[in-house]
Design a binder for these strands. Sequence first.
DNA 1: GATTAGGGTTTG
Length: 838
Amino acid sequence: MRRKMTSISVILVVDSSIVENKREIQGISPCCLTQSILEVMPVLVVKDGPGPGTQVPAQLQRISIPLLSPTSDCTGKTVMGRVVHKGPLVSMGEDNYVLKTVIQEDSQQNMSPEHSSINIILFGALAKDYSESVSQGDTLLVTGFTVGNSPTAQKDKLHACNLQLAGDDAWMYVWPSTVSSRASVSRKRTSPASTEVTKAAKVVKYTYVPLSDLTPGVVVNVYAVVTFFKQPFRTKGTDYCSTLKITDQSNKKVGCTIFCDKLEEHPKIFKMGDIIRLHRVKTQLFNGAISLLTSHGFSVVTFDGMVGSPVVPRTSSGSFKFGEEDCQVVEALRTWAANQSLVPAEPCVPLSAVQPKTYFDLTCQLLAKAPVDSSCTLLKVWDGSKCPHPLLDVFVEPNTLEGSPTLSKDMANLTANVLVYDNHVEVARQFKPGSYLRIYNLHAVPGASRLPSNDSGQSDQMGHLGFHLHGGTSYGRGLRVLPEDSPDILDLKRILETFSESDINDSSMFEVWSTPPESFGTAPDEIATERTCDHTVEQVSLAEVKSRGPPQMFHIQAQLKSYQPQRLYQSLKLFCHKCKTIRDVPDDVTVGGLFSEAQKDVGPCNNGYWTLVLPLPKEPPSESPSRTLTLLMSSQLMGKGKAKELIFLKGATLEETCRIASAYSNIVPVTSPQGTMTPMDLSAPFLFRGTKRYYGCKQCSQLKVGESLGEGVEVWDEKSVADALGVQLLQYGLLMKLELQDGTGSLEALLWRDAESFFHVSAEDAAADQEAQDRVQETMDRLCPPGSSTAERPWMDLCLSAYTVEENGQRRACYQICHTDTRGTNTHTHPHATPSDT
DNA sequence: GATTAGGGTTTG
C-alpha cells in the first residue's frame, strides 16, 4: 500500500466569503494541510490518496461503529465507513439544509447492519457540500459529531444510534471509491442547476424560510417546533384563533396567530415540542418583532415531536403535499429540539403525582359528564393512576349525568372530578364519555368548594382535591380530544387495560371495601345461610372434605375468609350454553367505543327494509361531520302492523340507543359494512330491551339478517329476536370464588350454578339494575363485613359439591357451593326508600 | 371583505 499522498483536492467551503469552491493543492505535506484546512472547510475529499487514515490528525482516535452508544464521549473521536446510502439534500430555506446518509464499517461487513451500519444526519452547509462531493461507495471519516438515538432504528434495522454533524466542530474526510465516480461529481458541479430545474417542473417545491431570516410583509412557508400554544378559542370576530410560539434551528422564537373559522383547520397541537409546518403565512411587525399570521390559502400540518415516533402528518386537509423530504425535516427538527431545552419541565402529570395548588396538564379518559350550570360543566375522568391525596367527589343528579362513572373508581380514589368553566364549557359539550382527553393548565384545588346539589357544605370532604379548568386561555388553558392512536393515548390505554384485567387482590389499590360497616346486628352465632338441598348427609369439617375428595356432596359449616372479585360488577359473566364458555360483561366505556366505531359506517343499507333516516342537529361547533340516525323496520312486520316491535338502529351512540330502547320494546343496533344490514360486532349487545342488554356468542352465532324475519313469531323477546337473527344467546350469570374456613383449615369454593338463589338476585337484573347489584354487595358485606375480624363473621351452613376438572392432563378437585341460600337479604331496603315492615 | 389577537394563572 502506498503511504504517500500525491495531491488532495478540497471541494467546497463553508465560509461563503471564500468564493473559490475547488482548489488543487500540490506538493504540500498532507498532514499540515489537513490541519490548516480544517479551520475553514468541513468536507475534505482526498483524491488518488492512499488508504484512508494516513493523513488524519494523530490526536483523533477512531471508534468502531458497533461500540457507539448515546453515552459515548465523542470529543476527539472519529468514525469511519463506506457510504452505502446517500439521501437527497433537503432545503429548509436559504443556506439551511439537511441530508441523511448511511455508512458501513468495512471491517464489520460480516456483522449485521444493526451493528455495523449507522445513519448520519448532516446539517447546514456541510449537508450541501456533502451532497455535491460525495458518492455512494466513497469512504468517510467523520469527526466532531454527536451521538443520538436513531429514530428510525426500528424501521431501517440499522444501528440504534445516529451521528449528527452540525456546526463548526463537524468535519469529514472523503476517499472517493474510484476516479470515475469523482468525475461524475465534477460534471454535476459544472451545471448545478440542471437537476433542480427538471425536478421543479414536475412538483411544486416549497421553500421553507428559517425563522431568523423572516422580513416583514411577505408570505412564507416555515417549519418549526411549537414552544407554546393555545387551543383554538372564539374571537370577538368571526373566527377561532390559535396563538402559538414557535422556533427552529435558527433559535429565533416567533409568535404566530392563526385565524380560521373552521376548528378542524386549526393546527392539531397536542403538546409543546410538536412540529408544525405552516404554508402561506404572512410576516408582520408587531411590537418590534416579527410575527406570523394566516394569509390567503393558508394550510397547516403538525407532527408529534418525539424523536423516534412515526412521522404521521396531522391534518384535516385532503390535499396536502407530504413527502420523504418532509420526513427528514421533521426528524431533523425533532433531533435538534431534543438537545435544546425548549419545553418547560414536563407539564403532563398523572393523578398519582399531582401536587395540590399546582397547575398541570392531564391526559385522561372521560368517564362521565354533567352540566352544572350555564358556565360550568363537570367532567369525571381517570387515568388509571391513584392520587395520593383524597379526591373530591362531586355529586350530581344521576339523570343529568351522561356516561357511566363506576362508583368503585370514585371510591377507590381513581376518579378526578374536573369542573370546566366559561369558554371551555362549549368545547366540553362535544365530548363523549369514553373518549380520551388532554386538559391543559388544570388547577388542583385542595378543599371543597361550594358544590351544586349539595347544600350541606361538604365538610367531610375538606382538603379533598378538586380540579378546576378556569375560564380564559391564559397559560394555554383549554382542553381537547386526543385521537386514540396518538402515542400518549396508546400508553394510557395500556394502563387502563391492565387495570381492568388485574386481579384485585391488592386491597391497597381499592379502598372500596374499607368504609366502616353498617350496623348489621350480626351476632357471631347467627347462621347466615341455609341449605335447600333434599339430601341428608353428615356435616363434616373442611379438613375432612379435602381428605375425602371428589366426587361427593358435603354439608359443612364455615366462615368466609375472603372472596373474589372484590369489584362485584366483575362477578357478572355471560355464559354460552352451546360452547360452555364464560366471558365478561363489557363495561359502558368499551361498548360505547364499539358504537362510535360502528358510527363510522355511513354507507347505505339495501335490504328491502323500510328505512327512516333522521338527520341529527349538528352540535356547534363540531369537528365531526353531521350525523344521521337510521331506523330500519321489517316490511314483513309492517304488513302485520307490528313494525314497532322490532326496530333496527344504525348510526346511534350508546346513549341514544339506550334512550330509544326505553321507548320501544326491541332495539337491535346494526351496521351495514357492505351495504347490507348486519348486527354490530357481537362484543356489543345485539339487543336492547328496556334497560336490559343481551349479548350473543361470537363463536356459536350464525348471523342471518336480511332474510325473512321470524315467521310465526308471536312474541318478540330476547329469545325470538336471537333466533330470528341467528344469534346464540348468552345467559347472564354470577361467578365468585369464596375462601371458606373453619377450625380445621380453609378451602376455595366457587359460587356459580346456584349463585342467583344464593343472593336472591337474577344475574340479568344485576346487569341492568344498580339496586340488584347493591343487594349482592350487601350480602357479601353481611358475610364478610369490611374491616371485620374472623371472629365477627357469621357462620354459614353450606352444601358443597366436590368434582374433578381436568386441566392440561392434570386432575384437580373443585368445589362449588350449591343448594344454599342466604337468609334475610331479601328484606333489603334501599337507603333512599321508605323503610317498610316486610 | 375586514376583523379577530398580539401567551404570562381564577368568579368558581
